[in-house]
């Protein structure tokens, strides 16, 4: 469980990136932190594994104050996958890359071997075991970075902008992967401004703007409230925009899913046809 209690954070440059943020993320939750660039999303999640310490207020991870423990200790619980895989890949082989963190955490060699194999398999990278990570494509490198964090099986997983530069197929794979993590009762936190992706995953949405949380709730509620989204410079998802336009016909305004939308329109259309007959 992550508890953020009235956290303020100011960068040395004087930018007040967080201005009194309070938030509770329970075990097994799937949360999307959204907002425009510069809203403080990444700054906030960097507090979860202690990379940043609050200037004021506290962050507790499973009851531990992040100020009292090292990043390495927190990292065992909180896995953090950075936006750009090229900011972390450095090993000669994919296998070594995945083993890197395991060695840092002092796992035994036989455990390391087992974990590496498991992680390679989970992300479909087994064939690249002995390949240099620099030889892989962008999407594959992103998966290696993810595998290198998953390897130590952290309880909480943070993904910073996982969909940036990804094509449709890669996003779909990512969505499947997140659902799998959720099924295993892992806590997953994604930082993103990809509205359509969030609309498909339907997580809890925490909306940030100017270093503050401006809304917190179900995706289908938050993403369908234009007034709330406007504060965070986010546009409602496509389906929601259609339904907001159709409110004059008495359509619900909190729809974000294609199939749900389809059923509602069909029902309405059939009812209307029956009237005519």
């Amino acid at each position: 469980m992550i508890e953020v209690k009235n956290v303020h954070f100011t960068y040395p440059s004087g930018v007040e990136a967080l201005q009194g943020v309070s938030l509770k993320i329970r075990n097994g939750e799937f949360v999307a932190i959204m907002g425009q660039n510069g809203a403080g999303k990444t700054t906030l999640v960097k507090h979860f594994n202690g990379l940043l310490k609050p200037s004021k207020g506290n962050v507790l991870v499973d009851g531990m104050d992040t100020r009292d423990v090292s990043v390495a200790t927190l990292a065992r619980k909180v896995g953090f996958v950075f936006q750009n895989p090229d900011h972390q890949l450095f090993s000669e082989t994919v296998e070594e890359e995945i083993a890197f963190a395991l060695r840092n955490f002092g796992f035994k060699e036989n455990v390391i071997k087992r974990r590496v194999t498991w992680a390679l398999n989970l992300l479909g990278l087994t064939q690249y075991r002995k390949t240099s990570p620099f030889m892989l494509s962008g999407g594959e490198r992103k998966r290696v970075a993810l595998a290198s964090v998953l390897a130590w099986n952290p309880k909480i997983l943070i993904l910073d902008e996982p969909t940036i530069g990804q094509d449709y197929g890669q996003k779909e794979k990512l969505r499947q992967f997140i659902l799998q993590m959720k099924a295993q009762k892992k806590t997953v936190v994604i930082v993103t401004h990809d509205v359509e992706f969030v609309a498909e995953c339907n997580p809890r949405v925490v909306l940030m703007s100017n270093g503050k949380i401006v809304a917190d709730g179900e995706a289908r509620k938050i993403l369908t409230s234009p007034e709330i989204l406007e504060k965070a410079a986010i546009i409602p998802p496509e389906i929601s925009r259609v339904f907001l336009e159709l409110s004059e016909f008495g359509f619900p305004t909190n729809v974000i899913d294609v199939y749900e939308a389809g059923e509602i329109i069909l029902d309405f259309w059939e009812a209307k046809n029956r009237e005519h007959v």
Binding site: Y168, I239, V258, G262
Partner: peptide, 17 residues
């Protein structure tokens, strides 16, 4: 597997029904 706009997919769904 390109990202077909959701409204286009909605259209296809309705069309199919």
């Amino acid at each position: 597997g390109i990202g077909i706009p959701k409204v286009t997919r909605l259209y296809q769904f309705l069309n199919g029904k």
